[in-house]
Nucleic acid binder design. Structure first.
Length: 727
RNA sequence: GGGCGGUUAGCUCAGUUGGUAGAGCAAUCGCUUUACACGCGAAAGGUCACAGGUUCGAGUCCUGUACCGCCCACCA
């Protein structure tokens, strides 16, 4: 038997664990993730169009999960593809401080280990502990991100709390304040009694709960509630002005009646907020602890009195129940009402929604508080000269087509969200985060990046984490300075993220970029689905169904892990991932490895004119390349990957290679000159098809393709990463 | 209460402007065929959730129903 002409490496199956670290090193050493270096080395034209993505920064608290892995795979494909196509391509990495999540995590850890709360430690000490924790977690997540093969430009790495980003946040706040978009006011907010902070509307999660629904006799009326503990201050009875049942009562009329702690005087209020269909059509209101009640009270200039304090304790107004926690007081209050004969009916199993803080907090208690808000309904002038409200701006970004959302159906959801949007409460009472640049002295308030001078105390509150996240596309590029990066790479080409943070993040970036830059933050939004387990369940620790990307990388390689997250994952739809899928794609990497071996064992010598049949084969790949490109351009990475996968396996390996065997056999006969010519032509064709296939696959499976490229005797560039896309 | 998505082979999913159904994995049978057993070949497997409608023709368009999932909503 003839000795193999292929490099020795190919005598063994493809081993990702051996190759991947080498490829990572080669890429990193090249510096080609940085577009400046690409231009410097003449690999990208200085005047080439730019293509940029800013990585949605993973929380520093976590480790890499499959959702991150999917995100990295998708974005890396887009990035590598555009880099190979000659774009000035930039992918900016970063990490997010995730204010509430991080602080809770550290606080919990400290409490477990030392039985100390943040108040025991003090603000400064807690910050130190958090910083230490962040440093450690950061390294972990960065290292894991690299292992996926992400060709991020680490020289541009940003952290939401680093100096530059901090400055951008301060600047943004001051500018918005000066424009009148940020105001401080007493409004009803979502208060989390457990974490002792406000929470934004979007972070509320409604949880279904069963409670008793009580019907009380409130003078001549029947009123209902699941929260008897709020009723102490109820002295207004509201009914719809058109409700025929109560036409004898007039607005402002006063009625004396017996209530929880004795006789009170109630006032009739006619307001359309009362639903005639619900219960008796009559309700009493608690303006201090209910959004809708607060609005009614404001409309009619009614008294607003607090009943419950920040910790859920009843105040003076509760009389004998004062000082008790609402949870404990409720049954006692019910008991008293029953004793007084004021309960007319009880529905024991009433199902309703309670609002909870989705960030690991408690049950929300609406409270009226002096906080900072962003006014979404105030018309102001934008940098591009237009005068409009933030709501209008957010709507326009999409309706004008300046930003397109993929899949399109999410546009409707986005509009609907804007419809329901209220002023955004941006101040939080947690300690870890961007401090609000507001200063107090003798009842005076000033807003400025630095202290106005001696004796001014900075607002102790911090900003909602999404405030700083909203600046991310441009704060990472150097804003507020007018940098070259900003000019070249903003608006970014694509924002790629999970559909679950469409509101939190996407809408807020549109808002911020609109007001502070006068442009959209990105031209496209590509929303991927959630990665679930093989049965469609969310992956969670408690279910024990987590598939860890790093374990998969170790067992099957990063390429296989990437492909398993791409093929079969259509935009915006959840992906069910099982280990079998990952294994299947490892086999594919090996297949490619062996195809190469066969091709290299039949080398072609120098320039050969292809015969007509072989030319047709080569043209076939060009056609495939066009289709793959079209799919990627349409964000159908699943179809693109699927197509090239099948071409390589079913067409190239199964048919073309098999047909080549007899041709090479005939070419081995020295007396058969036409056979030799045919073999030479075929060898040349195979080599060309292999080269093109490697290029087409490279964005999807960067490691194995690069490892093979490194073994090719002749190649157009040292690294496949910077080779030219076939079409 | 409103909206969205899904329902195609045992499992996970494709199916782009309508033309008598495809892939991967699993399962069956057979292969030490000199690129690959992480492989090759063969065979098997679906009344495309259901009911109507449009059409020469529908998985693909329209109407409705059922089930699963998600999102939104200040019904006391």
């Amino acid at each position: 038997m003839e000795p193999s002409k292929a490099p020795k490496a190919f005598l063994k199956p493809y081993n990702p664990n051996e190759q991947e670290p080498r490829m990572l090193e080669a890429w990193e050493k090249s510096g080609y993730a940085n577009p400046d270096k690409m231009i410097e080395d003449g690999l990208t034209a200085p005047d080439a169009p730019s293509y940029s993505i800013v990585l949605p920064p993973p929380n520093v608290t976590g480790t890499l999960h499959m959702g991150h892995a999917a995100m990295l795979a998708i974005e890396d494909i887009l990035i590598r593809y555009h880099r190979m196509r000659g774009y000035k391509t930039l992918w900016v990495p970063g990490t997010d401080s995730a204010a509430i999540a991080t602080q809770s995590k550290v606080e919990t850890d400290i409490y477990k280990a030392e039985k100390k709360t943040r108040h025991d430690l003090g603000r400064e000490e807690l910050m130190k502990r958090i910083d230490a924790f962040v440093e450690e977690s950061k390294a972990t997540i960065i290292n894991q991100t690299k292992k996926m093969g992400s060709s991020l430009d680490w020289s541009r790495y940003a952290y939401t709390m680093d100096e530059k980003r901090y400055r951008a946040v301060m600047e943004a706040f001051v500018r918005m304040h000066d424009a009148g978009l940020i105001y401080r006011g007493n409004r009803i907010v979502n208060w989390d009694p457990k974490l002792q902070t406000t929470v934004s509307d979007d972070e509320i999660e409604y949880v279904e709960q069963k409670d008793a629904f009580y019907h009380f006799k409130y003078g001549p009326f029947d009123i209902g509630t699941v929260r008897p503990e709020t009723k102490f201050g109820d002295k207004y009875v509201v009914m719809h002005p058109d409700d025929a049942r109560y036409k004898e009562y007039t607005h402002g009329q006063q009625i004396d009646l017996e209530w929880i702690n004795g006789p009170i005087t109630a006032t009739i209020i006619k307001d359309e907020a009362a639903d005639m269909e619900f219960g008796s059509g009559v309700m009493t209101i608690t303006p201090a602890h209910s959004g809708i009640d607060f609005e009614i009270a404001q409309r009619h200039k009614l008294d607003v009195e607090r009943v419950i304090d920040d910790r859920g304790i009843l105040l003076d107004i509760a009389g004998e129940f004062k000082g008790q926690h609402i949870k404990k007081a409720r049954p006692l209050i019910v008991e008293k009402l029953r004793a007084k004969g004021l309960i007319s009916k009880v529905d024991e199993n009433y199902v309703h929604n309670v609002s909870t803080n989705s960030r690991g907090g408690g049950i929300i208690e609406p409270q009226i508080k002096l906080q900072w808000f962003i006014d979404v309904n105030k018309a102001v002038q934008f940098p591009d000269g237009k005068t409009q409200t933030l709501k209008e701006r957010m709507r326009e970004a999409i309706s004008s087509g300046n930003t397109k959302i993929m899949p399109e159906r999410f546009e409707k959801i986005y509009y609907h969200w804007i419809e329901n949007l209220r002023d955004w409460c941006i101040s939080r009472q947690i300690w870890f985060g961007h401090r609000i640049p507001a200063w107090f002295k003798d009842g005076e308030v000033r807003v400025s990046v630095t202290s106005p001078g001696e004796g001014w105390e900075q607002d102790p509150d911090t900003l909602d984490t999404w405030f700083s996240s909203g600046l991310w596309t441009f704060s990472t590029l150097g804003w507020p300075e007018d940098t070259d990066d900003l000019k070249t790479y903003h608006p970014t080409s694509v924002l790629e993220t999970g559909y679950d943070i469409l509101f939190f993040w996407v809408a807020r970036m549109v808002l911020m970029a609109g007001f502070l830059r006068g442009e959209v933050p990105f031209k496209n939004v590509y929303l991927h689905g959630l990665v679930r387990d093989g049965q469609g369940r969310k992956m969670s620790k408690s279910l024990g169904n987590i598939i860890d990307p790093l374990t998969m990388i170790e067992k099957y390689g990063a390429d296989a892990t990437r492909l398993s997250l791409i093929i079969g994952a259509s935009p915006g739809n959840d992906l069910k991932l099982s280990e079998d899928r990952v294994r299947g794609y490892k086999h594919f990497a090996n297949k490619l490895w062996n195809i190469t071996r066969f091709v290299l064992e039949n080398p072609h010598g120098g320039e050969v004119k292809l015969n007509a049949g072989d030319q047709k084969l080569v043209d076939e790949v060009v056609e495939i390349a066009k289709q793959v490109s079209a799919h990627i351009d349409a964000f159908r990475l699943d179809l693109a990957a699927d197509q090239i996968y099948h071409f390589v396996w079913d067409r190239f390996a199964a048919e073309i290679l098999e047909e080549s065997k007899p041709i090479f056999r005939a070419g081995g006969d020295p007396s058969n000159s036409s056979g030799q010519a045919a073999a030479a032509s075929r060898a040349h064709a195979l080599s060309s098809i292999l080269t093109s296939s490697l290029k087409l696959l490279h964005p999807f499976m960067p490691f194995v393709t690069e490892a093979i490229w490194q073994q090719l005797p002749k190649k157009e560039s040292d690294l496949l990463m910077v080779a030219k896309w076939p079409v």
